[in-house]
Structure formats: structure tokens, C-alpha cells
Design a protein around this nucleic acid. Structure first.
Lengths: 351, 351
DNA sequence: CCCTATCTTGATAGCGCTAACGATCGACGG
DNA sequence: CCGTCGATCGTTAGCGCTATCAAGATAGGG
């Protein structure tokens, strides 16, 4: 705007409020409020007047005030370990579902640290979010207590069906999936099957996958050789490569590796190439999660599909259902719900 | 709690309010408020009393009410095209900076659709976020108008330094980066250099990278051959693979491809392998963004580092600075700020 | 010793909206 | 023709916090 001098207040062009819309339309504020939130309860002529005034003023409802008055914020929180594969698709699934319901997503990242998770839960409860989706397992006592106390709708994701959860959960068969990977490798004639996974502390997914691997060995009558198992330092491809290097130093005669994450498995395949090993001829590799790269890489990666995006969709849907029923939930009273997405072995070139 | 019957209201265990804390501490609400938000302005004995009462009640401040009263929500919004490489690291950078300042991030995904961006901006303005970070370019007029009108602190990310922006921006040298990739390929003795990029509609990053490629050809005195350029349908590895397939059908004699995205470039390398071409001997490949996989894959990928995570950090920092100065910003009056992160060619095995 | 400057604390008045209930009006059955 | 009911709209009273300013306390200077 052309400077009019600063001798007088610049006549702050305050954003229009609902009252302004109401005055312009010649109706009460409540009618405007209803026209926005429940158009069905307003008569046609009134609605038309309000809509005209809305257009004319360019009114943007103040959802902060709305949230305070109605104690519903139309926001749900997602708390994830990392913004990366395979969690990004879960987030994508959540935003897709939430968008359709005019809900928004606030994001928190824990870096697999239960205390950061606790801090995030506290912050989100302070914001009075209408629901929280977090990853199963690895909660502090305080986290559990706060959630219980507050009664926010809660969904845990990425649990194994056998995992004990707080309330609602969306789970995938992590343990059965790993067992199936081993079965598959056995069926391909592999006998010396190693394992590479991430750290199991605070990570029940990795715990379940390791157990599934052991189940598979057991079932096949193969002994568990701890030296044929290796832990990757973090979920980066390079960590997978390094883990394979260490593993092969100890057990150079492995003919297959069951890897508990596609990201790690990709590193494993690259490292195998680097060493002149042919995948799958010299070394068969199976991954976990069915990340994008599993399908796209060459050789493409046999993996266990964890339905990451669908998990996000389901989690969001469950939260919306609870939130729609009008907010607070008594965790003791409500029957907890569990949505099991199963798993699927996806056969590709790496095995 | 043990069911006491439903004949009477279950005596809702209302979350404690600031008033409850104040009463317990024997002070006024304002003192509690100050103890929380500006401890320095409260005397030591008072502070101690309040802190004790806070612990005892397990009080969680209601940030919705706080936001309404103070018209600062302590939330900033990030609007991104997709939750994937190379944007995930940008998001990560933002959350890391925001966490330190007790701000939260709300997330919006546009799928490269300007109308979805508009809807998200509207929603976030309705929530009275303290700042919005979005991707440069591809805004509707209405989006620009709303942002201007509202005066929210705004940062555009992933711009090219030559791009016209709305207010503040964090940019990287997309065009120069692509030119440097071509220079590098020339220096390696390549003469038939193709190009693969994503759609340029609503995507100024891809536009700038294409221009940089053309700059590079021009500089080297090489003619631009439109048939040596190909557009990938989306940002998936497979789309990169398919694009290379189409490109080689028309120009089988290419000895290098400049690819405007690591995700696509990875697909290109895999497709080359699939066709028995050796990278880089038969075909040199350069990518863009320096995604994790560029470093980890075999052969590792020469690429242009776009400082994705640093970009998120800078964007968040700029927003916090504006927000800290007390909110609303007059876009006409404020001097716009630009943070140029440059770019860096990262030499690896693929070229 | 009084008056002003500085620091703390408290009382008051909203922030912009919605829940809850009351008022109004036309329709309809007895 | 009156009472009742449902549909629609308005009035009132907050939601839980903070901005603002006034009041009291303390300190310092003339």
C-alpha cells in the first residue's frame, strides 16, 4: 500500500471476523457458524445471504477460536521414528485420508528415542489434538500415563499382531513375514541363511522380525548360529553394506541373507556386487517392507510387503472414527480395536 | 476406573486448568502464566511455589487457549509436493530446528497440484499458523493473494536464485548445477549428452535444471537435440528406467545422460544394467539432489548436492526469526531475504 | 523524607468462536 | 381455535488463556 505516513496508526486491516460476516449478511453470528459447520440446519434464503457475505469478505474462519470453543481441534498428530522409508508412505496414507475430512496432520519425529516421543506426546496433548498415531512399542511409563489420563484417541501402528498395545492398533505380521522369508529361502535350496537387522532396543518391529527368522530356522531344523546374525548401526543403505561385510568376514559361506529392512537389504545387494558376488546365484537376499526401490532396483528385491501406506490410511480412519464419536475415550472401557493387515511375500529377482 | 454406575455423571476428571494450579500454589493465574512463559519475570519464591504446584497437578497448558489469547500458535506449516526424496530431508531439517524452539510442524502435501496448495494455504491460515514454508513456484493467484493479505511469515524453498519469489526464500543453484553436470560430462570426454527430467509444469526446479542443461550444451558449442531429451512421467525410479528406454530407442548412441533427479537417475542406472550397458563406460550418468541412495548404490552416483536438509533448517530458522519479531509481516514493506545455499558437484563412480 | 523509577504481582477484559437453551413461527391434530 | 411439535434463528455464557494496566513494594536520588 502507498505509505500514508506513520503519524497515525496504519489502521490495521484486521482480518474479518465472523461478526463482520454476520453484520454484512444481516444475521446473527450463530447463523454464520451454522452455515459453515452444518449448512443443513439453515434455511435456503439465510444460507444464500451468508454465503454471499462470506465471499464478499473473504472470511477465513479462525480455527483456534473454534477449537477452544468446541474443544475439537480438527488436528491429529503422527509420531514417527524417522521421515524415511518405510514410514514416509505411512505418512502419505494418513494425509490422504485426513485431507478428505478437513483434518490436518502435525508431525513429530522421535529418532527412535522414547524420551523424545514422550516430549512430543506432551506437546501434542497440550495442543489438544483430536488423535495421536504413534508407533507401537518403546514408550516411557510417563507417555503411557499421559495418554491414559488424557483420553485422546490413540492408534499404534506397525505392531505385530502378537504385540500388546495400548488401545487401537494397526498391525502387520512381522514375525510371520520373516518366517515366510526363511521358508522361501529354504525352498530355493539355501541352507546357510544369515540375518541382518537393525537394533532391537525400543524397536519391537525389529524384535518381531528377528524372532520370525529364528522361527523359520527352527521349523527347518536348522541351528541358530549367532555369528550368522549381524546388527546394522542405523537404517541407511551403507549400514546394510557394512553389516554384510562384517557378516561375510565371520561366515564367508553364507548362501542367503534374510534382511529385516529394504533399506539395509539394498545396501547388502550393492555390497555383494562390489565383492563380485552374483545375487541371487552366490547370495540370495530378501528384504522387508516393499519400499519403492525394492521393485525398481536391479536385481529387484524379494521382500515382505508391510502395507505401509495402507497402514497409514487405516490408522487415520480409526482415529477419525473415534474422534467423530465425540472426542475423549476411556481407555479402560472402550473395547480396543485391532486391524491386522497381514503381510505378503513378494517374489523378485534377488532370491 | 471401577464402574460406579451411570445413574450419575461420572464426575468428569477434567484436566487441570491454570486456575487450579494457581489456587494450589496460592498465586494468581497470571503468575502461573508468567512462570511458564517468562520465568525470568517471576521472583524465586513464587517460581518455586508454582513449579511445585505444576508438578503436583500434572498440568498441561492448553495451547489452543493460549493461541487464541496471544494470537501466536507456535505452529508452522510445511507444504511439500510429496513425502519422498529429496523432500524428506528438508522436512527433517525443519523439524530438527523447530523442536529446539518448542514449535510444531503441520504438514501438507500438494502432489504438485497448485489447487491443493491453495486449499492447504487456506486451511493453515485458518489455523493461524505462525509461518508457512512452501515450495517456490506454481502458486495460484488466489494463494498469493491470501498470503499477501494475511501477512503470515512465508518462506519459499527450493527456488533457483534467479527465480522471482514472494518474500523470503532459501534457494539452491539449480540452473548452475545442471550446467556444471554437463561441463563435467564434457570434461570426461562425452559428446552425446542426453537429458531426462520430470514434467516442468508447476515445477520451477525442473525448469531451471533443464535450462542449465541447455546452458551447458550451448557453452560447449553442442547443438540441442530435442530428441535427446525425455520427460519422466513421475518421480519414481521406474519412470526413470522407462524414460531411458524411450530415449535409447531414439538415440541409441548417447554416451551420457544428465538426469534432473536422483530418483530418476537410479532408475536410469538400473535400466542401463538391465540392457547390458556398463555405467559409466558405455553410459555416464549424473543425478541431482544427492539423495541417500546416490552415495550408497553401486556404481555410486555422481550428483549435484542440493543441500536438502540444510534448506529445511534455514527455512525454519527464517520463519522463526520473523515469527519471533512478533507475527504479521507487511510483504510490501519488509525487505525480502534470500538465503543462497549454492550447490556442489559430487563426483562418484557413475561418471 | 518525599517523589520517581523499577520490579513484581494481581484484577480486568477480552481473544473469536460455539454449546446450550430460549424464542419465534408455521403446521397440524383434536 | 388452542396446544403441541418441529424447524429455524437468536441470545447468553463461556472455552482457558494472555495483554494490559493498575497497585503495591522496593530502591534510589535529591
Amino acid at each position: 500500500m502507498p505509505a500514508t505516513g506513520t503519524d497515525t496508526l496504519p489502521a490495521a486491516p484486521m482480518a474479518p471476523r465472523m461478526e463482520d460476516v454476520a453484520r454484512l449478511a444481516g444475521v446473527s453470528m450463530m447463523t454464520v457458524s451454522r452455515a459453515l459447520r452444518a449448512p443443513g440446519t439453515v434455511s435456503a434464503p439465510m444460507l444464500a445471504k451468508v454465503r454471499a457475505a462470506l465471499r464478499q469478505t473473504g472470511y477465513l474462519p479462525n480455527l483456534v477460536a473454534s477449537g477452544l470453543a468446541s474443544s475439537r481441534t480438527q488436528v491429529v498428530a503422527a509420531i514417527i521414528p524417522l521421515i524415511s522409508q518405510p514410514f514416509a508412505p505411512t505418512l502419505q496414507g494418513m494425509t490422504d485420508v485426513l485431507r478428505a475430512s478437513a483434518y490436518q496432520l502435525v508431525l513429530g519425529v522421535t529418532h527412535y528415542d522414547p524420551r523424545q516421543e514422550e516430549a512430543l506426546v506432551r506437546a501434542f496433548l497440550s495442543r489438544r489434538v483430536d488423535g495421536i498415531a504413534l508407533f507401537a512399542g518403546g514408550h516411557t511409563e510417563e507417555t503411557v500415563a499421559m495418554v491414559r489420563q488424557s483420553g485422546v484417541p490413540l492408534v499404534e501402528m506397525w505392531a505385530d499382531p502378537a504385540t500388546e498395545v495400548l488401545v487401537d492398533s494397526v498391525c502387520v505380521s512381522q514375525r510371520l513375514g520373516a518366517r515366510e522369508a526363511v521358508r522361501h529361502l529354504r525352498a530355493r535350496g539355501r541352507r546357510r541363511i544369515g540375518f541382518i537387522g537393525g537394533a532391537t532396543a525400543n524397536n519391537i518391529r525389529q524384535q518381531a522380525r528377528l524372532r520370525g527368522y529364528l522361527d523359520g530356522l527352527d521349523e527347518a531344523g536348522l541351528p541358530d548360529d549367532p555369528a550368522a546374525r549381524e546388527v546394522a548401526g542405523c537404517f541407511l543403505m551403507e549400514a546394510g553394506a557394512e553389516a554384510l561385510a562384517r557378516l561375510l568376514t565371520r561366515r564367508p559361506d553364507l548362501d542367503a541373507v534374510c534382511v529385516a529392512s529394504d533399506i539395509l537389504a539394498v545396501g547388502v545387494v550393492f555390497e555383494a556386487h562390489r565383492r563380485g558376488l552374483i545375487v541371487p546365484d552366490d547370495l540370495a537376499v530378501t528384504g522387508f517392507d516393499d519400499a519403492e526401490i525394492a521393485r525398481a532396483m536391479y536385481p529387484s528385491l524379494t521382500t515382505i510387503d508391510m502395507k505401509a501406506e495402507e497402514m497409514g490410511r487405516q490408522a487415520a480412519a480409526m482415529l477419525l472414527e473415534r474422534a467423530g464419536q465425540g472426542g475423549r475415550v476411556d481407555l479402560a472401557a472402550m473395547p480396543s480395536r485391532r486391524c491386522d493387515l497381514g503381510h505378503a511375500l513378494i517374489l523378485r529377482e534377488s532370491s
